[in-house]
Design a protein around this nucleic acid. Structure first.
Lengths: 235, 235
DNA sequence: AAGTGGTCTAGACCACTGT
DNA sequence: CAGTGGTCTAGACCACTTT
């Protein structure tokens, strides 16, 4: 029937959002119930339900079954930030990405890695790759991989395929954890990233899981003055 | 207090997820269509549709109308990270939060702030607050607020209510932008945060919009060794 | 008892894609 | 053309909260 360009549930969402954005409905205030929206906007309940459900999902509203729907209290809510694949990010900026492989070998498990990767064997695959944006070093990728989950890792041309990409091809990705910190980088890292004296680095530690086990642990060092994470929350 | 059986759409989601996690359906592979799921699992199409739609929303699948549903290629996908309210974060850890107000005044617009806040008037409200976790300084909040949007800002007890909380009460939040960077902090910041010599700082720049205008700009400095951002992505 | 959200169904029409 | 996803309806039953 009424499949106009904007879907009906979008109209319902806007109907609610307008009142929140204008300040008419403040945080904690009760929002019209699904039944009321059905009557007000002449939509079916499933349509109103979808609209409200999506607003809940995006953090704008919160619901209490049996009680009602309320404008979410964003006071203590979190805001999303995106961590992206470095190669994709550089290319999206329209710049040239080049990866230089500094090391790619089988190594005994370093003590500092053992706890974070918890591998079964005594040896790991290790790789050290320097990613450039327009020939300027941007990220140093220090990665350890469990050989049991990616036996062919040493044969991969990491200058062409990023390790993250390869691992996702080989082992189904189940879980990714990121920890972001500001550090004063070790001398070797600073030198490779061509940092100015005393320049800080943004360190992202990425652990990935596959088939119920830890598959890889990576230390991603970024030049403090040349790299930033960006996130926007709208509404 | 009876058996809360899992919703049907969750079963559909698991049905699909199991095959992805096991590697049976690899990135790019075609997923069973809604009709097929309807037949396989004896659910209505709307139920299958909801399940698939949620998996698309979470980034696991991607759809092409008229063509089909496919396992998403996570290669260049981003992973979410959360930036939280500092007071809420500290309290959630079960620790004591204390905010010390170092400054709260009307100031002429600093040159470095003008471009980022783009205020109409010639003066701004400025506040400098040091947030402690168990009496250890964790975040220095250097904030500028447009007086037009929060006229009562100077009267707020920032030791009790965080500025972010107050601003959300006064002006409906429309948009928040975050930029995260690693820096070597200025001497004054290092001293206030009681950083070790040469310690790096994690800087979060937060800009907020309200009623179509920029409402506040905040520089949030964090001790590099005592603060981290954490994010988990689960498939 | 009335209201609320949570879920589910069995249909339907549409626009689009691929053969 | 048949198949796909995108949307929408008008009912329904349930568990829960509020009055």
């Amino acid at each position: 029937m009424s499949s106009a360009s904007p879907p009906l549930y979008e109209k319902v969402k806007l109907h609610v959002l307008k009142r929140i954005r204008s300040g008419e409905w403040r945080p904690g205030a009760r929002v019209h119930s699904e039944h009321e929206l059905v009557r007000e906007l002449n939509v079916s309940r499933m349509t109103a339900n979808r609209a409200i459900r999506e607003l809940v999902q995006s953090g704008v509203l919160s619901r209490v079954a049996g009680s009602g729907t309320f404008v979410a209290d964003l006071k203590s809510a979190g805001h999303p930030l995106q961590i992206r694949n470095i190669a994709a990010e550089i290319r999206d900026r329209g710049h040239a990405h080049r990866a230089v492989v500094l090391a790619q070998a089988r190594v005994p498990v370093p003590a500092s890695i053992r706890e974070r990767l918890q591998p079964r064997g005594r040896e790991l695959f290790h790789s050290l790759v320097l990613h450039h944006e327009n020939e300027v070093p941007l990220q140093l990728e220090d990665r350890y991989v469990d050989p049991a989950l990616a036996p062919g890792y040493l044969g991969v041309d990491l200058g062409t395929v990023t390790a993250h990409e390869y691992l996702m091809e080989v082992a189904p990705l189940e879980r990714v954890e990121h920890v972001v910190r500001a550090i004063v980088p070790p001398a070797r890292v600073a030198s490779l990233l061509k940092l100015a004296a005393g320049e800080a680095a943004l360190l992202i530690e990425r652990t990935t899981w596959s088939r119920g086990r830890r598959a890889s642990f990576a230390l991603l060092y970024h030049a403090g003055t040349r790299f930033e994470l960006r996130g926007v929350f709208d509404l």
